[in-house]
């Protein structure tokens, strides 16, 4: 099941690549780099989330930072 999800996210990444890559012009080096790095970031994150779904995320981080203030309006 987990490997199936990994394959699914690979398929998503591949289809994004196939859609977007031919539209990029040759001189758009920076755009290509940004596209590739964001795609790989997404793949990396998806694999992490598939194997560790309970991993604390940005919400937990923000909650931790703002907790002293948030407690003031808690009910």
């Amino acid at each position: 099941m987990k490997w199936g999800l990994v394959i699914a996210s690979l398929i998503i990444a591949m289809s994004m690549f196939l859609y977007q890559w031919p539209k990029l012009k040759k001189q758009q080096k920076k755009e290509k780099a940004a596209f590739l790095s964001l795609t790989f970031l997404g793949l990396f994150l998806s694999v992490l989330l598939i194997f560790f779904p309970e991993m604390p995320g940005p919400t937990q981080m923000i909650d931790w930072i703002y907790k002293p203030l948030g407690r003031l309006i808690e009910k």
Partner: peptide, 14 residues
């Protein structure tokens, strides 16, 4: 970047 469209799909994935 010169255009925002190339990064729309990866951002959607994220």
């Amino acid at each position: 970047l010169s255009d925002y469209r190339p990064i729309v799909l990866p951002i959607g994935f994220l």
